[in-house]
Write a protein that binds this DNA or RNA. Structure first.
Lengths: 215, 215
DNA sequence: TGTACATCAGTGAACGCGCGTTCACTGATGTAC
DNA sequence: TGTACATCAGTGAACGCGCGTTCACTGATGTAC
């Protein structure tokens, strides 16, 4: 229909954004290209002007989503961005909030894509792994906010992996039942928050153990 | 072809078993009925002699899988079954082992189905929720194996939810990258085990916090 | 700056294919007498 | 116990449908002169 290059680039972004929403909600196999293009505001045939295949789209969606996730985390922990200086406790409370649990489309990209990425192509999975590894490093910078035990970078990563894993596991369990048993979902979130409360002290024993294991 | 009632019942079980394997590996949307029936040793048309729809099959697969999971857990913790008296540490080590991480078809049903069940019908999701809740209660019985802090049944559930959530989250993160970055997958599993080592002491602070919150 | 033409993002129909489901048919099993 | 018939698990072809992908076409944008 004739469109400026700038407009075409924006349309491409619209397709990526629509795809991410739909893929998170229903999985890559759960959405067809026709619906996906309609959601972005276009007709089916135009898809291949922007992406060589559905698989390539999925890979780019993953790359963009985890890239954004790691940037947002870095910004939040640096005290800049729209939520400056959020403490770890606040982060946990928000992460395990009912709102985040129910917002599949915009929530944590790692939790939203972790299982599905296993069924995407290798390129998507590599992008995911790179983002995940970055996030572990960034998240690990919180570890030394308690002074009782100081961890080096490798140890901080171990700590980050275990705590981040716990947050994701609790979130995914809550999501798995929230539409048919919201009370159970709430109980799961609340229990996770109770145990993760004051993560600094919670993780002191974890830190001790990491230290002990490395000697 | 004419088959005894006993044989027909066994064939039905074969369809369920094949479906569970394929659904865990590729998701319900990732497998067609033709392939599924072939895997079970039959032709496509016979499917509807056993199940009213693919959706009903998925629901029954979930029910059977989580039912078996909770029974096995109960048996293991009671010190009977083929792995009598396994300590919690041993359980964690096995749960976060490379072998369990790579055995998608036969491993923990909760971890294997948690995300997919969200996209199945309500019946499947309700079966999952019931099994999950049962597992929390059973798993919670380990909580009092340390004598420092005694928890009542409600508190033990909170503890179980958080620890089980951590195990599942770490496992799912490892699985998400294991085919393209096995080293990262191993690092995730190892980190999870390091932090969960001696879960009794790890969870002492969690228990303290649960107690403190309830007063 | 104005004209002529190539580019290429968009449309919408079509492709072959596999999907979930239905159906007519087969023939050993299971039942009624 | 033996015969006649109903049942129903299994087969394999067919149904309409939506899938990912391809294609001919359109027409404003972008470029060459």
């Amino acid at each position: 229909m004739g469109v400026t290059k700038r407009q075409a680039a924006e349309n491409r972004k619209a397709i990526l954004a629509a795809s991410e929403r739909l893929f998170r909600e229903r999985g890559v196999d759960g959405v067809g290209l026709a619906e996906l293009m309609k959601e972005a505001g276009f007709t089916q045939g135009g898809f291949y002007n922007h992406f060589p295949s559905k698989d390539a789209l999925a890979a780019e969606v993953v790359q963009a989503a985890v890239g954004r996730a790691s940037e947002e985390l870095a910004a939040a922990l640096a005290g800049v961005g729209d939520r400056p200086g959020a403490t770890l406790n606040q982060r946990v409370d928000r992460y395990l909030s009912r709102e985040h649990s129910r917002d599949l489309e915009h929530g944590c990209a790692i939790a939203g894509l972790a299982v599905d990425v296993r069924r995407m192509g290798d390129v998507a999975q590599r992008h995911f792994g790179e983002g995940l590894s970055r996030i572990f490093d960034i998240f690990g910078t919180i570890a030394n906010s308690s002074e009782k035990v100081e961890l080096d970078q490798t140890e901080r990563r171990q700590w980050a992996i275990a705590i981040y894993g716990q947050m994701i596991g609790v979130l995914l369990l809550a999501r798995s039942v929230q539409s048919t048993d919201p009370a159970l979902a709430d109980e799961i979130l609340t229990s996770g928050k109770a145990v993760l409360r004051n993560v600094k002290s919670e993780s002191e024993s974890a830190k001790q153990r990491i230290k002990a294991k490395r000697r």
